[in-house]
Simulated assay, not measured.
Amino acid sequence: MEGLHMDLKRAEESNLIKGAFVGSSNYPISHLFYADDALLLSECNEVYMSNLLSILHSFFFYLALGLKINVAKSCVYGVGMSDDELLYVSNRIGCGKGVMPFEYLGLQVGSNMNLVNNWKPLIEQTVLNELEKIRMTFFWGRSDNIKKITCVKWDNVLACFEKGGLAIESLKAFNLALICKWIWHFSTSNGGIWVHVIRAIHGSHGGLDNRGCHVLGIWQNMIKLFSSAQEKGWLIQNPIRSKVHC
C-alpha cells in the first residue's frame, strides 16, 4: 500500500487529483488506508476520476506489486450529489453505487456518531458495568450455581493500598486513562494525519485552549472528560507526563 500512497500523493501535488478538504484550514485528504482496504476521496470531476483510475491500474501498482484492484467489488459514495449524478459516476468507473450511511468495521459511516445508538453495534453502553460484574463474580468465586455473600464493597476492592483496597485496576479509570492518552498524543505529536484533521477542525490547539472545540463531536467529549479529570485533580498538570491516579 506504500506504493499506492506515494502515487496518490504525487498526483495530488501535481493537481492531477483533488481530495476532500477538512476544517477551516482546508486540510486535504485524498486517501485513507486500513489493512488492505482503501478509501479514496475525490471531487466529483471526470478528469480527476480518470486520473484516479489510471493510478489504480498503473504499471507500478499492478505489474510491479502483483496487485489488482477489483473495481467491480468497490463502491462509490456521494456527498451532496443527486442519485443521477452518483449513478453516472458509478457507471463511469464500473463499480457499484453505494448509499450513505454504510457499515464499515461494525460502525455506520455517515451517521451522527454523537448518538449512542450508532455505537451500539461495536460496544454496548453498559459494557463497563458488565465487565466489572464478570470480574466481581470471578473474584468472589461465584457462578450460576454457586451464590456467595459479598463481604466488601467492590469499590473498596478497586481502591489503592493506601486507601485500604487491593489496588485492582478500575476499568472505568483505565478507560479514562486511554482517553487522556489520546490528548497526550495530540499534545506531543509532531504530525500524523489525525492530528492535522483535529487541528483543521478545532484549531491549532485542538480545543485545549480557552476557546475550546469549534465543532460538536467525539473529540469535544474527550476534551470534556480530560478537563473534568484535571479539575478533580486526577491528572498531573504536565500533559507530557499525565497519568490517572487511583
Rank of each mutant, 00 (worst) to 15 (best):
M136I: 01
F174E: 11
S90H: 05
V127L: 12
L41M: 15
M136G: 06
S74Q: 08
A64Y: 09
F161P: 03
F139W: 09
A64S: 11
R135A: 12
N190D: 10
N26E: 13
N118W: 05
L178K: 12
N91D: 08
S25T: 14
G23K: 04
L216S: 15
Y34Q: 02
E162R: 14
G191R: 01
G98K: 06
F60K: 13
N91W: 01
M222P: 01
V47R: 14
Y104H: 07
A35P: 00
E169H: 13
K68C: 04
L41N: 09
Q108W: 12
S90M: 01
V109Y: 03
L107V: 13
W154R: 10
L87E: 14
N156T: 06
I123M: 14
V157C: 08
G206M: 06
G165Q: 07
G165C: 03
I69N: 05
A38M: 07
V195D: 03
A200G: 11
L65D: 02
H196N: 13
M49W: 06
R199M: 07
L235N: 08
S90W: 05
S74V: 07
L52E: 04
E2C: 03
W119R: 01
H185N: 14
Q125Y: 15
F174D: 14
Q230D: 05
I123E: 06
L4F: 10
C75R: 13
M49K: 05
T137F: 01
G233P: 03
L178E: 06
T188L: 06
C213V: 00
S30I: 02
I240Y: 11
F161Q: 14
C213N: 00
G212H: 05
S111F: 01
I69T: 13
A20K: 08
V99A: 08
N70P: 00
H245I: 15
H57S: 13
S111H: 06
N70L: 07
N45I: 02
H5I: 08
L216N: 11
A173F: 11
S25G: 02
N70G: 03
V116A: 09
I134N: 08
L208D: 00
N117C: 13
I236P: 03
L65P: 04
K172N: 10
V89R: 02
G80M: 00
M222A: 14
Q108M: 12
I236M: 13
E124Q: 11
M113S: 09
M49C: 10
R211H: 10
M136T: 02
L208T: 03
